[in-house]
Design a protein around this nucleic acid. Structure first.
Lengths: 226, 226
DNA sequence: TCAAAAGTGTTAAGTTTACACCCATGA
DNA sequence: TCATGGGTGTAAACTTAACACTTTTGA
């Protein structure tokens, strides 16, 4: 029987840990949790969970993300596996890190409250449990690489956004300032970023034009370009 | 006791699978193995192994790589975790894929023979076991991204190499042809690629200058640039 | 009326691409 | 002597970077 051969090898707990990025007031944020169980209860950590017996690891990540945000569809990518022997002081756990991008306004604050989860500025994170700091670092690298080649930033913004918001988002992700005119010129060349009729008056007296990401138009560009 | 909390969760076999890239005669190659055990014994697969109880996952990958190549120091990077429920038909196994770059001449052919391992052209791979095809695809994407931003190609070449070899290597990795003069111009601007006094006469009557990668010079460039 | 954010083009610098011939040598 | 792979520079196209003032309006 085939399982016999496998059975001589050790088994491990397998977990997922999620780096949930949000964006608000020009700041990139990460959703952190006060760890609700021992060991090291109360320390700041990423939201995680163990993989279930009949669950794909990606589905485990989706489940954890859903349980903390209430969101069913969100942008999520694997960052990598973390498997040092002593990375978790409780027991041997191999953990797969995922990052997710969410519209911070759509996240359920009830669920955040129930899970003792809080948005913290990426620039000013508290010390984190285990290797979670390293997971965040790698997730940010992943995000930077992706955002430079694909329009995924929209997942961090509300459906309608101003160009100033979009620019601040890119600056926050890339950690560098961008020339306003050059930025707007580039955006103007992207047919999938559409001007709307709406005006935002929250952040300026004059008001700023609201834009929208048109996924359909983006897919068309892809067809012709790739 | 802290382990109590963890114990309610399931455990899984955790494996590593290695995509070992080599380069010979203008072709990128992958080292494949005839799977030596059931289930699906005899099918083409990547070289893999289970993670040991007190072993980091990276160390497990190094061990597997060493057992098949005889090499202790090789360039290796994690590709990602693969964890679909039914990816392995033998049992539930979460597998972490790693790719490695080796100088094909330094690989022990005795060990290859003992492990029923063979170099196959990347362009012309046989059907592979489980999700190994997908692992190779992701590894190649990883490799392309890395090779475009860092000088890691040297790990696939002998210590001394000609510019033609180097160009063919880049062409094989990127899957695109490169203009010879533009390529050489770029290489010339890299102080860490050093001309030597040696001439290679294997591939041409006239002979070609052999070059060498100077890691120390590369590190100096890094210090000033980063 | 003024403070605060929105919006708008041009030029220079740098990078990338395209392209064709001579060289050295062993067979 | 000729076939084979090695080696070399320039100009055009394109991309990126630098830069400053006017507009609108609520307080």
């Amino acid at each position: 029987m085939s399982t016999t051969f496998y059975q001589q090898y050790p088994k491990f707990h397998v977990a997922v840990d999620c780096i949930i990025f949000g964006f608000n007031k020009g700041q990139l944020k990460v959703l952190l949790q006060k760890r609700p169980f021992e060991p090291r209860q109360g320390e700041w950590s990423l939201m995680g969970g163990f993989v279930n017996r009949d669950e794909d690891i990606d589905d485990a990540a989706k489940r954890v993300l859903r349980s903390l945000t209430g969101l069913h569809d969100l942008y999520m990518r694997q960052v990598g596996a973390f498997g040092s022997v002593h990375r978790d002081s409780g027991n041997r756990v191999v953990s797969i890190a995922y990052f997710a991008l969410v519209d911070i306004d759509k996240v359920s604050s009830d669920l955040n409250y129930q899970n003792a989860a809080y948005w913290e500025d990426l620039e000013n994170l508290p010390p984190l449990l285990f290797d979670h700091q390293e997971m965040v670092r790698k997730a940010l690298l992943c995000l930077r690489t992706l955002v430079s080649s694909r329009p995924i930033g929209f997942h961090l913004l509300p459906p309608l956004f101003t160009l100033t918001q979009l620019q601040q988002l890119y600056e926050a992700i890339l950690g560098d300032s961008i020339d306003k005119r050059n930025f707007r010129k580039r955006i103007n060349e992207m047919p999938f970023i559409e001007k709307t009729e709406e005006i935002d008056r929250k952040t300026s007296k004059r008001g700023a034009i609201l834009y929208r990401f048109n996924e359909r138009a983006f897919d068309e560009v892809k067809i012709f370009k790739l």
